[in-house]
Nucleic acid binder design. Structure first.
Lengths: 233, 233
DNA sequence: CGGCCCTTTGATTTGAGTCAATCGTGGTGG
DNA sequence: CCACCACGATTGACTCAAATCAAAGGGCCG
């Protein structure tokens, strides 16, 4: 993991903010940003605490979740290198609604809320870009949560695997060619299920010939079958 | 229902766009906007169709939902007078993700996507305001959908009633003092359940002494009990 | 080699959806 | 004005997916 010298070199800043920033803003941003490396399963911020900063993911990945009164966690999003985290809280001017926790060792840059809002206000291009991004994130999250409510665990598991195998980029891939390696616990949370149910779903997918499972390594065998079981046609 | 002569008098435009608009923009908006009155249960737009306009609700209310492959509808939001509808689709530059359907007779003004985006781009204050609104809507929707996944129908029903009785404003209230009048079908959709299950939940709430039910009129009797059963403490 | 943790498998429970039948109301037409 | 009809609401019986509870396998590390 390389140390990020300035925002000019950070893949995250480049992807989201970079193309829109004026030279002067770029300098200001670099000056205000604080980089920090988190170990796996460390929290970046907790739901309910004031949204003081937007975080820009330089390397690694995190999950965003809510902890319910019953104690269980509901994952509502995953972010990887180049993504912004904590955006909603800062823009809404309200406390974070979710907790952000690293899935692996990750480096993030904290952009103070003040700085972030200032730059966005001065820069129409950036503001429009953020609007588009927020709109897209919102719709994606909605899709996932609606699916959870109405599709069976087998379908959801298949759909999850497809998403992972396809989108090799961001979102903390953990995909190597046709093999996905992942703890059952983490995977169950992302699918929105339990470890036991997930295990049975994977078994069913193996029986159907869609994948092969060897401990925590899952190999993609037959995409067409996977798609069919995921409900795509 | 009064005919809306111009955006200057429209409660919707005033609430969301008004405070930010320059005089020149206000004129331009009034010129581009098309008002139309929809009857109950009419669709304003369908999921999957290109997002050509943002709609501003002048009077009435609508529900936003997705239709699943199985044919059932999942309501993910409700909008009332003063709200904007179709914002996400236009901002994301993608087709609408949901279908918008009136719950009652409603008047909406269609703002062409072009016009809307132009005005937002020229007006930093408006853009920031939209960012805040989108962030808040996104978080609210997330709350509802997460609740649906992890709370029992009784809790959800109680929480729904509380929300309705409290927020007497927007969202197509249908609340008169302590009495809420609503068809079971519509209510079940908003709670994210079925008519039968909802009926049983209401019955349970009656037994608990939280409410009284007389046909489709529901009277609030004991808020504390309602809150307790909703999971608030 | 032994212990521990992750995973799998099995048995049981349960919440809610579905199907089906009844009830009550409100509206309509005779 | 009353009887009847139709539709929404309620209640009951049944089914089912998935959570939960419980126990047994299998690697991996000390």
């Amino acid at each position: 993991m390389a140390v990020v010298a300035s925002c000019a070199e950070c893949p995250g800043a480049v992807r989201e903010l970079g193309p829109c920033l004026l030279a002067e803003q770029r300098v200001r941003l670099s000056g205000a940003v604080v980089a920090h490396t988190f170990r796996p399963h460390e929290s970046v911020f907790h739901e309910g605490t004031p949204a003081l900063a937007v975080y820009c993911v330089a390397t690694g990945s995190l999950k965003l979740f809510r902890r319910l009164s019953t104690g269980q966690e509901t994952v509502t999003g995953v972010r990887g290198a180049g993504d912004l985290v904590g955006l909603r809280g800062v823009l809404a001017g309200e406390p974070y609604a979710r907790t952000a926790q690293t899935l692996e060792t990750s480096t993030l840059c904290a952009i103070p809320a003040e700085t972030f809002l200032h730059i966005a206000r001065e820069n129409a291009g950036l503001a429009m870009r953020l609007l588009a991004r927020l709109a897209r994130e919102s719709r994606d999250m909605e899709s996932v949560l609606v699916e959870r409510g109405h599709q069976h665990s087998l379908q959801r598991t298949a759909a999850f695997l497809l998403r992972r195998f396809r989108g090799g980029d961001g979102e903390g891939a953990m995909v190597d060619g046709d093999v996905l390696t992942m703890e059952r616990e983490a995977m169950a949370q992302l699918v929105g299920s339990t470890v036991e149910t997930l295990s049975r779903a994977l078994h069913a997918l193996v029986r159907a010939g869609a994948i092969e499972v060897d401990h925590r390594r899952i190999r993609r065998v037959n995409d067409a079958t996977l798609r069919r079981l995921a409900g795509e046609r």
